[in-house]
Structures are given as structure tokens and as C-alpha cells.
């Protein structure tokens, strides 16, 4: 099968220092994968390079076998940026945000067409936030905001969706709902790549993971890829990997510090440390 997007020998950097070097990666239709690495490992830069927002120093990006001109975005791509980059006080409603994703379909009319509104409404329903369509984005909960931005990425009918740390800052329940939604979308043919530094609640739930730290370290299914050796290479720290049939649990190896801290607890708390409220 031909990859949807292929990166060949890609090197990117800011000013004089490279952020990552010689990355080769292919993304296929129906592939749901996680880009895993610590903060500052270059995950966001890799995503931005795929989107044409960062000019590569070297290498090339191909979309369905065709070389993409540096600095241009793939034609059918959706992007969900990190929530920290969004101005939540901006005067737009959820529906208006989603409608922005229809830009390619309608550029020079201040009014949205009936079809635009219909598609936007369908998507808001699909991601489960239709009831807040007319609320300003600043008044939505974190999970709702994330879904509105996912809806905007989907409304342009993309083949590939890139999400930058979509699960950071949300609780376990919200994270898992989002992962389920993404799994459903990928089953319908969409290729999805999301970056995360969260191993347990995100990475181990994905069918495919790419370990990344200033370059590609390895990729594969979580059960195969997550070994103490590769995790050490990716995160630069020792980790325990516990396996139970299909499941993988990863824990940091810094238990000695925890013991020390526990001994430092004030005596009043230590005596009966399992009091309920």
C-alpha cells in the first residue's frame, strides 16, 4: 500500500541548532499512531514540518508519492494545535471555530452557506458537543474545547489529522473518550498522528507508537516497542515495564526518592495516613 504521507531524511532546526536529524517515517490510511517522546524532543517541530509551518533544512515530504514544496501544507490535512496556543478569550462561538475549517470550500463570502452550517453541525454532533455550538469557546470545558478543535480539523474532509498533545491537561476519562473517538475515525479510513508524552494512559492504548527524541528511535506496536532499553533511549531515564497479557504498564524507577519523601511527611500525617474526608 502506498503511504499517505512519507518523510524522507528530514532534518529541521531553529537558528543554528538542529531539533531533529534524518527522520524517515511513513503514515498510511487507517493508521492511528502516537508520536511519543519527552517535552522538548522535537515532536511539535516534526508535526509542524509535516504541515509546512517549519521549513526543513534537509530532506523531503511526499504526499501520495508526490513531493511537497517546502513551506506548503498537504492538501487534505487537519491540524489540532496545543491548547496553550489558543486565545480562549477570542470572541467566537464553537460553531464559528468549526466553520473556519471550511475555508478551502468558501473563501470570499462573510456569510456561511447552508451546507457549511450543516456539515459543521453534523461534526459537532459527531464529536458530542452540538449542545454548546452557540457558546463562546472560552466558556467550554477543556474536553469540549478539545472536541471543537477536532471538529474544525475534520470539517474540511481531510485524509490525515495531526494532533499536538491533545490529551495533556485533561483527566483520564476525557482522554479515553478522545482516544475512542480517534480510533473510530481511523477505522473509517482516516490517518491520525497524535503527539504525547503520556505513556500509560495514552501511548499504551494506541495500536502504533513512534518513539521520538531528536530523531526517530523506533516504531511499532506498544507491546513490542516499549522495553526498558527503548524507553531509556527515548526519555533518558530508567523505567519499569510491567506486562500483563496484552497490557503494558510503565512506571518510573525513582522509587527510592518516594520512600525518602514518605519518611519526610509530618508525624501528624504519618500516624493515620489513610483518613478519609
Amino acid at each position: 500500500m502506498e503511504p499517505l504521507l512519507e518523510i524522507r531524511n528530514l532534518t529541521c532546526g531553529y537558528q543554528t541548532e538542529p531539533v531533529f536529524t534524518r527522520v524517515n517515517l511513513a503514515l498510511y490510511p487507517k493508521q492511528l499512531s502516537g508520536l511519543v517522546g519527552p517535552s522538548g524532543s522535537g515532536k511539535s517541530t516534526l508535526i509542524k514540518a509535516m504541515l509546512g509551518l517549519v521549513h526543513p533544512w534537509q530532506g523531503e515530504i511526499l504526499v501520495r508519492g508526490k513531493r511537497l514544496k517546502p513551506g506548503t501544507s498537504p492538501p487534505k490535512v487537519g491540524y489540532v494545535p496545543q491548547v496553550e496556543t489558543v486565545d480562549w478569550n477570542f470572541p467566537v462561538t464553537a460553531e464559528e471555530v468549526v466553520m473556519m475549517g471550511r475555508y478551502r470550500h468558501r473563501q470570499f463570502s462573510p456569510w456561511s452557506s447552508r451546507r457549511d452550517r450543516l456539515v459543521a453541525r453534523e461534526l459537532l454532533e459527531r464529536v458530542g458537543v452540538a449542545h454548546v455550538a452557540h457558546q463562546p469557546i472560552g466558556e467550554l470545558s477543556g474536553g469540549q474545547q478539545q472536541r471543537v478543535f477536532l471538529a474544525r480539523a475534520l470539517v474540511g474532509e481531510p485524509e490525515l489529522v495531526l494532533l499536538d498533545e491533545p490529551t495533556s491537561g485533561s483527566d483520564l476519562h476525557v482522554q479515553h473518550e478522545l482516544l475512542h473517538l480517534l480510533a473510530e475515525l481511523s477505522q473509517q479510513g482516516l490517518s491520525i498522528l497524535l503527539s504525547t508524552h503520556d505513556l500509560n494512559s495514552v501511548a499504551t492504548h494506541l495500536p502504533w507508537v513512534v518513539c521520538f527524541n531528536q530523531g526517530l528511535i523506533c516504531q511499532g506496536e506498544p507491546t513490542e516497542v516499549f522495553t526498558p532499553a527503548t524507553l531509556r533511549q527515548t526519555f533518558g531515564a530508567d523505567m519499569l515495564v510491567l506486562r500483563q497479557e496484552e497490557r503494558v504498564l510503565i512506571s518510573s524507577d525513582a522509587t527510592t526518592l518516594l520512600h525518602e519523601l514518605r519518611n519526610d511527611l509530618p508525624p501528624a500525617l504519618r500516624r493515620n495516613n489513610s483518613r478519609s474526608a
Binding site: K48, L51, V92
Partner: peptide
């Protein structure tokens, strides 16, 4: 509102 995503969307 969102310069980067705007650029991606053309």
C-alpha cells in the same frame, strides 16, 4: 484567531 492553523487550511 489562529494564524498557524489558518496557514495549514490554506
Amino acid at each position: 484567531f489562529d494564524r498557524e492553523v489558518a496557514q495549514v487550511q490554506g
